[in-house]
Design a protein around this nucleic acid. Structure first.
Lengths: 145, 145
DNA sequence: GACATGTATTTGATAGATCAAATACATGTC
DNA sequence: GACATGTATTTGATCTATCAAATACATGTC
């Protein structure tokens, strides 16, 4: 009994489940990061991405890709971060359309604390999942561009 | 070389990746479902959840859980769906605080088409992932409450 | 049966993100 | 070097979801 029935039904349920789980997960992280450092998950991801980047700077459009946001969403996300002095704006000498994001000393300092918090929070939320399985899902997620 | 470094760093990268991928994925689905049926992914999930429910009705708070939204978010999500006649509101005889959501014939009809679209869209987006792995990951996601 | 406490839902104010259009610049072609 | 086309970013209007507080009802206790 119980015909699971084909035609993308598994894929659909996976998507619905992903949607639900991610909403819950990011809300948790948002709350905790916000309480500890006054940062949302996306705020944190900006700082982290910039810090990881080759020259310590990223193009705004690359941030959009890394966050899964639109360019417009990035503009609005960065606005308050720049205003409170966590990030700065750097021009590109070759191409005046491009604007890089870099960390200020303050941003860098805040990140160093937030990074450890974020890691602990994540570990707390999904630490019970075996590392191998985690990496499997991670590579699956990478395939979703 | 390359020390991955412990203490929840894998967990953190997983969360960031999950956040990015889900944003992209749901935006895709939103666009396509919206073009075909005028429904967002969450709209669709509401119809689908209600249709799946035991008596064809769900409490609003249960919908919140299934969608990963807050109760307040559900209220606002359902409002237009009720207004355009896809769902109705049913009272609970025993407990006047509770309000159930049920499909109207129109909602049910729309769902029958949207369900097949949604399944195809999902298949399209993540069909390349082996089914076994999908189910494994789905159960992983279930463990995130 | 009045009262304190708890649960389900809604509401007001606000943040976060989207889209479509605008701006500003770059690049190739004639 | 003017022009059509394309890319990076920002802006205006709008939508979605949040939080905190309010409402409405239920339940246990005294």
């Amino acid at each position: 009994m119980s015909e699971p029935d084909p035609v993308g039904r598994d894929a659909l349920h996976f998507c619905l489940n992903l949607n639900r789980a991610t909403a819950v997960l990011t809300r948790h992280i948002d709350h905790r990061l916000s309480a500890l450092h006054g940062l949302s998950l996306n705020d944190f991801t900006v700082l982290h991405s910039v810090a990881q980047a080759p020259q310590g700077k990223v193009r705004r459009s690359d941030l959009a890709t890394q966050l899964g946001l639109t360019a417009s969403g990035v503009t609005r996300l960065l606005l308050p971060l720049e205003k409170i002095g966590l990030i700065t704006r750097l021009p590109d000498i070759r191409d005046a359309r491009i604007s890089y994001v870099a960390l200020t000393p303050t941003g860098s300092e805040l990140l160093s604390h937030a990074l450890s918090s974020a890691a602990h929070i994540s570990e707390d939320l999904i630490g019970h999942v075996p590392g191998m399985q985690l990496r499997a899902l991670s590579t699956l997620l990478d395939s979703l561009k």
